[in-house]
Simulated scan of single mutants.
Amino acid sequence: MIFILILSLAAVAASLNPPVVAVVTGGTRGLGLGIAQQLAAGGSSLLLTYNQNRTAAASAAASIVREFPKVRVELVGGDLALPATRAAIFNKLDESYQDCRLSSVVHNAGQYVGVTSANCANLGSVSHLQFGDGSLLCEDGSVDFGPMHYYQQLYGECWVDLAERAMARMKEHGEGGSIVGISSPGCTVQYNPQTGYSMPGSGKSLMEYSMRIYAAQGSKSKIRCNVVVPGVTITDAWTNLAATRGTDRETITGGLSKSMGVETMTPRECGGVVAFLCSDAGKHVNGVSLPVDNGLHLKA
């Protein structure tokens, strides 16, 4: 009888305090993997997205489970500029984590179009395109909005999609939660504008603006919403970018660090700040674009 009572009490406790799950887009490499590792360290199971490389994603997921055996990891692949990919995330969440509470969503996924990954729009490198220098003009005098639209889908539209679906689920379980976007220096007035970052910056600016509205709306339901702006973080994205410039990752990141007078970070170091915002310790931080950049915003 006592044994049965103990089991009953345990079942009640589990229903009142279900395990938590976090969604991290682009969570199988680079900064996203560092974020995923830190969330797993805090006890969150994970739903991670990747673009194309299923084998590499599965290897990253397995490494997380080896380090944190108590967490579960599920994967969803596809370009996040596509509505179908975003729908697949929440279909997988609802299917595989029925026993869990959605506690955090982090929109980290991104790319240098045509450099670090393939994309559904079949765009090559568009790093030469920027506002105000005539590079967006076509020979017939029209403006080529294709690259801008893709970046706005990947960052701004995807962010809105994730936030809307996440807030609905967080409101339903009534325990609140955290939604975090990953931006870049130059997208807000905290930084000088970064020429050459016009296209991705246009998408991330939408994310940073709407974040404040989501923060105001979500606070009524204990849902906080923030953006993290990392500084020079050592990831493989720099390897691919450096290759297009005939150099290597260490040279390009070291040069940036020296010229800007700031230290570099590892993905896991930056991920620790994201995990803080998603934890109870960070529950009073809401509606901010937080530079995690070793003071870069004071100089750039």
Rank of each mutant, 00 (worst) to 15 (best):
S117N: 14
D94T: 13
Q37M: 15
K204V: 00
D144T: 14
D236S: 12
L137I: 12
V12A: 13
G287K: 02
A166V: 10
L5E: 07
R268N: 12
C225R: 01
I223Y: 04
S257N: 09
G132Q: 07
A168I: 15
C138M: 06
Y191V: 09
G255T: 13
V227L: 00
A57I: 04
L296Q: 09
P291C: 11
S142M: 02
G114P: 07
K258E: 11
E263P: 04
E67Y: 09
L277G: 00
G254P: 14
D248M: 11
A62P: 08
D79M: 08
G78C: 13
K258F: 08
L102R: 14
T49I: 12
S289M: 11
H173A: 10
K283L: 07
M260H: 10
G231S: 01
T239L: 05
V76M: 07
A281G: 02
A13K: 15
E269D: 06
G30D: 08
V126L: 07
R101T: 06
I35R: 13
H149G: 04
V21A: 00
E95A: 12
G77Y: 03
V160G: 01
L80Y: 10
A243M: 06
L80A: 07
V228N: 01
T28Y: 13
Y209G: 02
N122V: 03
L136H: 08
M148S: 12
N51A: 00
L123H: 01
R212Y: 00
S15E: 12
G134E: 11
V262Y: 02
L33S: 06
K92T: 15
G32Q: 10
K171I: 01
E172H: 14
Q38N: 06
G295C: 02
Q190W: 05
K204N: 08
D144Y: 09
G146Q: 10
A237S: 15
D144M: 06
V73W: 10
S59V: 05
L16F: 09
H149Y: 08
D280M: 09
N240H: 12
K70E: 05
R165D: 05
R245E: 07
Y209V: 03
L80C: 12
I64E: 04
P267M: 04
H149W: 10
W159D: 04
R86L: 13
L137G: 04
A109D: 08
L298N: 12
H128A: 11
M1H: 12
Y209M: 00
M211W: 05
I252R: 09
G78H: 10
E95N: 15
T25Q: 03
Q153R: 15
L256Q: 09
L75P: 05
V292A: 07
D144Q: 02
V285P: 11
N119C: 00
G255Q: 14
E139T: 10
N294M: 02
G231Q: 05
Q153K: 15
F276W: 03
P147D: 04
T264R: 11
